[in-house]
Computed example of a mutant assay.
Amino acid sequence: MLIVVALGGNALLRRGEPMTAGNQRANIKRAASVLVELIGEGHSVVVTHGNGPQVGLLALQAAASPGDGTFPLDVLGAESAGMIGYVIEQELGNLLKHRLFATLLTQVKVNPNDPAFGHPTKPIGPVYDEATARRLAAERGWQIAPDGDKWRRVVPSPKPLVILEASVISFLVERGVIVICTGGGGVPVITRDDGSLCGVEAVIDKDLASSLLARELKADMLLMLTDVDAVYVDYGTAAARALRRVSPKELSGRTFPAGSMGPKVSAAIEFIEATGKSAAIGKLEDAVEIVRGECGTWFEASALFPRNLGLPARHR
């Protein structure tokens, strides 16, 4: 199968870990070994990845520079995609010396009138306690929102419409190249009145962009890997239940957090409704078992499988 594998930012940098180059590389090495297992099962993969922690750190570093060190988020997104993609490509290459790899900066067209620009939801950067987050928001003009039991800066996350390099990615995949692309959801761009492109101040959700990429590549599966073993209803409560196999109809009326699981569920539904194929969400270490259907949350177009919305936690 051709699988678009979306590595979550929290799969590449564990919650609570300092954002150091060493920690990032150690986690990417762990992710690379999982990807190699998938490839060893006979699958072709296209790798996408998040950048929320990294792009937020770059923004903080730029703001702390002497003089006018501020860079727009589209430029910082491209910088973080290159940084993370480089390490992913290198660690995969260390394990698969006979394969060809390409890390591709990816521009993704968005609507300049997307309502997301007026309602930021995408968390970036480090986590803070509430008091610190509110102080920084007041000092720097940030929008902030809860992220678990902590708080983070949030920025606009417009819907991805077109992946401009999709034909290049397809060309490489057809020739057996393992492509790392759409980093951080891709670099958000809009079309000016004269037809030229320019970047915008936003961070596209990686899972929604990965879903779009999977559709454009006619992939067989969309696999979203994070640090949570499944999608849960009533997450964080005593009544939490892991979802095992679901169809879009069975999720009708349910809501999931906009800054975390919500986009993943939306991405899965978009992919299967457009293609009739399957999508899955689960923990990085469980990737092979998820693809085999043994754990994680599977989204399928029909409900021909046994209805099972409420596994007691958990399949780990």
Rank of each mutant, 00 (worst) to 15 (best):
P263W: 01
D149E: 13
R215W: 00
L217A: 13
V46G: 05
G185T: 04
T191R: 15
N94H: 14
A209E: 09
G186I: 05
L2P: 04
Q54S: 03
P156K: 04
G56E: 04
H98D: 15
P18R: 14
I281T: 07
G148C: 11
T70H: 14
L12N: 06
M19I: 05
D229G: 03
T132N: 02
R30E: 10
A209F: 05
A219T: 12
V55T: 13
A26I: 02
T182P: 00
A145M: 06
M19S: 10
I281G: 05
G93I: 08
M221G: 00
V187G: 04
P72L: 13
F171E: 13
W142G: 08
L304G: 13
M224N: 02
P160G: 11
S80P: 00
A209C: 08
Y128R: 14
G16T: 10
K122I: 09
L243C: 04
G276T: 06
S196A: 14
I144F: 01
R241A: 14
V288Q: 14
F271W: 03
G141P: 08
I28S: 05
P18C: 01
Q54I: 06
V127M: 14
G69L: 11
G50F: 03
I39Q: 14
G82F: 09
F271L: 02
V155L: 09
A133M: 12
K29L: 07
I39Y: 13
S260I: 07
R175I: 03
R30C: 00
D194R: 10
G8Y: 06
P257V: 04
V291K: 00
S44N: 14
T121G: 00
L12D: 05
P248K: 07
G293M: 06
G125M: 12
P158N: 12
R153N: 00
G125Y: 09
